[in-house]
Each structure stands twice: as C-alpha cells, then as structure tokens.
Design a protein around this nucleic acid. Structure first.
Length: 358
DNA sequence: GAGGCGTGGGT
DNA sequence: TACCCAAGCCT
C-alpha cells in the first residue's frame, strides 16, 4: 500500500463507479516497481511498456523478479535495442510466451530507429509497435501518457460483466463488455482507473470466491444484486487438450551437453533447447536423433503442460566420440546448465538427466 | 474467428 | 489431484 497523496478534486461529471473505485485505489493501490503512486506523475514509458508486455497472461508475483533483473540490465529503449538476441531470449527464459521477448526486442529497435527513441503516445501509433495489441496500447496510453483510453483485459471483462450482469458468453460478449467499460471509464485519471480495475480484479473481484463485502463498487453491481456474481462472466466451453509424445536427446561430450537454438517462429521459438524431433500423436522413440550414436533410452519421462496440448517426452542419452565441432549446436557445460536460459520444459529434462546420471 | 502460443499459482 | 486460469498478441 502506498502513501496517501493529496489529489485534486475530480470533475463532478465523474460517474459513481469511477469515483468510488478511484477513492478506494487512492487508499489501497498496490505498490509495484513499474507503478507510480496514485495521483502522481506518470511513470517511465519504457517501464510501463515492459511491465505491460511481461504481464500479458502472467501474474504479478511471477513478473516482479524478471522485471527487476531486466530493468537493471536494460534500463532504456536504447539499451534494449542494442542488446544481443540470445541475451534477451535467455533473460526471458521461464516466463513463457516467448514471442513476447522477440516482439519486445523488435519493438525496441523500431522505437530506436523510427521514433527517436521515444514510445509513441497515442493508441493508434502504439498499435503499430510489434507486440502491442488493443489492450496494451490502451494501457500504455492511459498509464504512461495520461490519455483517456478504454482498457479492457480479463480483469476488466470480469468486473464489467458482473457490474452489468452481462449474461452473453465470452468471447461473443467482448463488444458488449467494451461498450460497458467505455461507459464507466472516467475522462480524467483513466490510467489510475485502469490500474484500479486490475487491483480490484486480482484481489477482490476474483474469478472464484469474489470478496464482495470488501468491494468498493458493490453498491453499483447488478451481479451482486442478483446474487451470484461468481457465475459471471459466462464463458464458452473449451476443447480438451490432446497428448503429444516426443524424445529429447542428451548428447554428452567431455562434460558438456549439446544444445540447439529452435527455429525463430513457433513453439518455444528462438530459445535454446535440447535436440528433439517434432512432437506427435505417437512416441517417435529414437526416430529423430541428432546423431548416429548408441542411444540409451531411459525409463523416466518428462511431462509438461502447454496451453493447447500435454507433452510426454522420452529421454535418450548418448556420447559423442568425434570432434565437438563436427556437429551443429552449442556444447554447454553441464555444471552451468542453469545459466543457459532454457524454457521450463527443457529445464525439467536437464534436471532429470542430471539426476539419472548422478 | 479460432487456434497457436508457456508457465506457475490457486483451489 | 486435476483442473482452471492469468494485466493478450498474432495469423
């Protein structure tokens, strides 16, 4: 909770929802590294942009340490634009949705080369930067540049669906919810309002077990009045996740293991990884081995859930007896694998292999 | 529009 | 436990 700061009186035209929510925010705003205290000067646009991208589909507690490390290393657009691709991808390792890191770097370079090192300050221009969509453009315009923008993310969708008791299922309800959000967004302090909605959504108006008795806008809430706000928003049923199978190959040479960078696009794109063939409906076993050596197939497997499928991977190990330079990839010291910047699924595999090999 | 795209936390 | 899901974007 941040210190209370003196605020100028809000315009009388401010609707009750925004007024009550902002009063609550002034007293209860979370203190976050990328956030300015309510009612104070706008925070650094670089930090707002970085935090908004890191926070896409990712919780605050997960983002915080990544944000601290990242800003210490690359504190400005210029610093990030000049960074090495491999360093940036390694710094993102474990955070997921790796296209965000690729877009962040591309975005920093666009900003440095085409925008004089300054983030554009309108939604429409922000929308042209790689990795910035409707939500992030609105959030940056409001939070970093004080513009009135309608910021709609999953928190706002949930709060607004309950506030207006919208029964239409998502995603069909999106236009309706955006129109409703527009109606409650104030002309002034739209940035604080957006962040207040986030805090409300993450701490009080939660998906399960909303704490309505603590809610500052309960009196305005039709969902609460109707008695079952936790049933909103209604969502379309989602598909079952299929299981896919694969093999990861642990090729050792002189205390090092072979790593390869994955293709720039697609799953885990641009990340360093253990060699592996495509992941398919049936177990490929040794079909896609990176080298013709005597592979040993282990009993232990690695299971990992991705957004749209479940992976079960076999582990195979072997030794490279020829000159290290005669195979594609990077030989990484086994003792230093923790600093290789591997995605979580490969970190599971390397941890398992180090256990197996002792 | 719908599906591809990670991961860890909460219940 | 086995789900569900979180400050979305891109194609």
């Amino acid at each position: 909770m941040s210190a209370k700061v003196p605020l100028s009186p809000l315009p009388q035209r401010l609707p009750g929802v925004a007024r009550d929510l902002l009063d609550w925010y002034d007293a209860n705003a979370r203190s976050l590294p990328w956030r300015a205290p309510p009612g104070t000067a706008a925070p650094d646009p670089y930090r707002v942009w970085l935090s908004e991208v890191m926070l896409q589909q990712t919780q605050v507690a997960t983002v915080r340490p990544y944000f601290e490390r990242w800003t210490a290393r690359w504190p400005t657009f210029a610093a990030l634009a000049a960074a090495e691709d491999a360093e940036v991808m390694a710094a993102w390792a474990g955070l997921g949705y790796y296209a965000r890191a690729r877009n962040l770097l591309a975005g920093a370079r666009v900003i440095a080369a085409q925008h004089g090192g300054q983030l554009p300050d309108t939604e429409a221009m922000l929308r042209t930067i790689p990795g910035i969509g409707d939500y992030t453009a609105a959030a940056i315009a409001a939070i970093a540049f004080g513009r009135r923008a309608v910021v709609v993310d999953a928190n706002v969708e949930r709060v607004v669906a309950r506030l207006f008791a919208i029964q239409t299922p998502l995603p069909a309800a999106k236009p309706l919810i955006r129109a409703a959000a527009d109606r409650v967004t104030p002309e002034e302090r739209a940035g604080d309002f957006a962040q207040a909605m986030m805090d409300l959504g993450s701490g009080i108006c939660t998906t399960r077990g909303p704490r309505c008795l603590l809610c500052p806008i309960r009196a305005h809430c039709e969902g609460f009045a109707q008695g079952a706000p936790e049933r909103l928003p209604v969502k379309a049923a989602k598909r079952v996740r299929p299981v896919r199978h694969g093999t990861m190959f642990w090729l050792e040479c002189d205390g090092r293991v072979l790593l390869r960078r994955r293709p720039a696009k697609g799953l885990l794109g641009g990340m360093l990884a253990l060699p592996t063939g495509p992941w398919a409906d049936t177990a490929p076993l040794l079909d896609d081995a990176p080298a013709d050596v005597a592979w040993r197939l282990h009993d232990e497997t690695v299971a990992h859930g991705f957004t749209h499928f479940e992976l079960v991977c076999a582990l195979a190990s072997g030794g490279w007896r020829r000159h290290p330079d005669t195979i594609d990839g990077e030989w990484w010291p086994i003792d230093a694998l923790d600093s290789a910047g591997l995605p979580a699924v490969f970190r599971k595999a390397t941890d398992a292999m180090r256990r197996i090999c002792g």
